[in-house]
Design a protein around this nucleic acid. Structure first.
Lengths: 148, 148
DNA sequence: AGTTTCTTGACTCTCATAGTCAAGAAAGCG
DNA sequence: CGCTTTCTTGACTATGAGAGTCAAGAAACT
């Protein structure tokens, strides 16, 4: 249960990767795909969607690729997931379990619990910026560097 | 995202319904299905699985049906969801996003966030007993009764 | 002109979830 | 006992979303 679709995970990873590369010019799709273990063709689709957010910019040609336009501290995981969600064909996640999924139209005994769960999840998502994730990775890398 | 499968929702509703009926003898599958808007044939399957938990008992024959064997205060939503999860063929929810789903084997920057989310969800699930849900419904029913 | 890259959108594949069905066994009733 | 009602079992089908693929074309740079 509570599965985050791969597409959404990939979107997060792609932005994460772009964030780490920020300041070094455009990064090719193929590079991102390799670094984050994302199927290339699938990533093309996802990055195309992400352009709609304005967080991301593309450049064609030899030195082309993708760029992150804004600061990693300004994008939260929640932002990305919400966008990807709105982008999916099924809008059945208004309240984790949607009202139109509930035969009692949200009036059932479970509704408030599902809402609480959804809120708890997004509290975490909204508290976590892409920058936080980078910091976390740096710390881990530092820890294992000690052992070398 | 973060969708709880119908099967799991149905299992919760079925137990909830049995809990409300406790003390009034066995309750027929067809009754439960009607009361909770669950497809009859599908509910048969789910109740069959739930028998494996010991929370639920069945009686055949004319006055047959299903019974809740234990107190609604002793079963949490978390218990039910965990059972239904283990029952599914795909065990890809060890940490919301499973390690074997993560190309970095759980060592990626996202791992701790997924874990936090999973914990936050189950904190709520584990805090909520079936009895709590009944109480919640009673309160709601009381509130609307005032208007009549 | 010629690479190299992104762009677009349609296309296929796969599989979990959802839901169905039918024949049979237990339990009680008359 | 014979009849009805109910659960029981397990195999079966359907559907849709998610995952992934592909190819022809357009921009950008050398």
């Amino acid at each position: 249960m509570a599965i985050v679709p791969k597409r959404n995970q990939y979107a997060l990873r792609a932005i994460f990767e772009l964030a780490k590369h920020q300041g070094k010019g455009p990064q090719k799709i193929s590079e991102i795909a390799r670094a984050q273990a994302i199927p290339l063709r699938f990533l093309e689709v996802i990055l195309g969607q992400l352009k709609g957010t304005g967080w991301v910019e593309s450049k064609r040609g030899f030195y082309g690729g993708y760029l992150l336009k804004c600061s990693p501290g300004d994008i939260t995981v929640g932002d990305v997931l919400r966008f990807m969600q709105g982008n999916a064909r099924t809008m059945d996640c208004v309240a984790c379990i949607s009202k139109h999924d509930c035969p009692f139209n949200g009036e059932c005994a479970f509704a408030s619990m599902w809402n609480k769960v959804n809120e708890a999840m997004f509290k975490i998502y909204d508290e976590t910026t892409i920058q936080d994730l980078i910091d976390k990775e740096r710390k881990k890398a530092g820890a294992s560097a000690k052992m070398v």
